[in-house]
Simulated scan of single mutants.
Amino acid sequence: MSTEAVAWAMDQAPMPRTEKGKADTTARHVLQALAEHASPSGTDAHPSVLRIQYRTGYDRTTVQRALRRLERAGLIAKDGMVESRIRYKLAMELRRPATDWSDLEREEDDFRAAAAERKRRSRSKGVTHAESVTVTHGNAVTVTHTESVTADVTDATPSRHALKVRPSRTERRPNHQQPSDNQLHKDSSSPAAQTDEPKGELHLEAFGAFWTVYPKKRAREEAKKAWIAAIKRGAEPKHIVNAAQAYARERFSQDPKYTKFPATWLNKGCYDDEPDPQPGPPRLRAVGPRTAPRDLNHMTDEEKQRALNF
């Protein structure tokens, strides 16, 4: 393999074009495969069609057509035969014009400008200007705001307007005292936001109790997010803590790698699972002079062996 020939085929050789003027990437790929078998001067390139197929993944007909297009473009020329294979010479004296790079840069700039324009138009569609806003309240009062504010109030029977627009925070309410900034913030927030925001920090003190009793303490922040989500779904903190204690007893003396992460345990709602039954320790007849039964957890290894062989 010649690095000079490969570098020429990849970066310096003119880009072959199709009949429609588009880049002929197939012929370009075949040219690179030929360069891998050429000498530093671009001669003695004689890979078989089968070898080029293996290198590029193209079928035999595609490779042969690409070779003919490269010959017509003057990038390669036949230079005899080697063991029934055609030998080619690469036209390494040809160079790609510098305008190819500048054309690509210009296309990139045009693409970025078009993307920025689409983004600007998308944002402008969601902007509502408050210079002239018509507001219809539920008590059938119509207020028209302009640069010089004029308020016309007409009492009528209650009716629904086809379009209801919430008043801007910066607009003054006619015949009423200007509300404070805190009141504006309270009025502008939706009921769902008013309930969800404090609820997200609700029972975080109880989370400390959960974290204390849970058998595996990993990824505390993820567990805290899962805790808040579980509370929002309606789970009781005391119920979760009790379930975590039961799970800790269940996993006691078990392989810790099979213990769930706290966030996984909370997200899957495992606090509502029924705990596995915990059978008591096996009771065996005493060995030797002892008359009271003992369990395996309080026996020595020698006593266990004698008890099991009894």
Rank of each mutant, 00 (worst) to 15 (best):
V6F: 15
V6P: 03
P14Q: 07
P16F: 07
R17S: 11
R17Y: 03
T18Y: 05
K22I: 05
A23W: 04
A23M: 11
V30S: 03
A33H: 01
L34E: 05
A35D: 07
A38M: 03
P40I: 02
T43F: 01
D44K: 07
A45N: 07
A45G: 09
G57M: 02
R60M: 07
R60A: 07
Q64T: 12
L67E: 00
R68E: 04
R69P: 02
R69E: 04
L70F: 01
L70D: 04
E71K: 03
Y88P: 00
Y88A: 02
K89L: 01
A91G: 06
R95F: 05
R95N: 02
P97A: 13
A98M: 13
D100M: 13
L104I: 13
F111W: 08
R118P: 06
R120G: 12
S124I: 08
S124N: 09
V133C: 12
V133Q: 09
T134W: 12
V135S: 02
N139L: 10
A140G: 06
V143Q: 10
T144Q: 00
H145G: 03
T146I: 10
T146D: 10
V153W: 07
K164N: 10
R166I: 06
P167H: 00
S168G: 09
T170N: 00
T170M: 04
R173I: 12
Q178R: 15
D181W: 09
Q183L: 14
Q183N: 10
K186C: 02
D187V: 14
S190D: 14
E197P: 07
P198Q: 03
K199Q: 15
E201C: 00
A206W: 07
E221P: 09
E221N: 15
E221D: 15
I231G: 05
R233I: 08
A235G: 09
K238M: 06
K238L: 04
Y247I: 03
Y247D: 01
E250M: 01
R251C: 12
T259C: 14
F261H: 12
F261S: 14
T264K: 02
T264F: 03
W265F: 04
L266G: 04
L266E: 02
N267I: 07
K268I: 01
G269F: 06
D272T: 13
D273L: 04
D273N: 13
Q278H: 06
P279S: 04
P282K: 03
R283D: 00
G288K: 04
R290T: 04
T291I: 13
N297Y: 11
T300W: 02
K304V: 14
Q305G: 00
Q305M: 07
Q305C: 01
A307G: 05
A307N: 02
F310I: 11
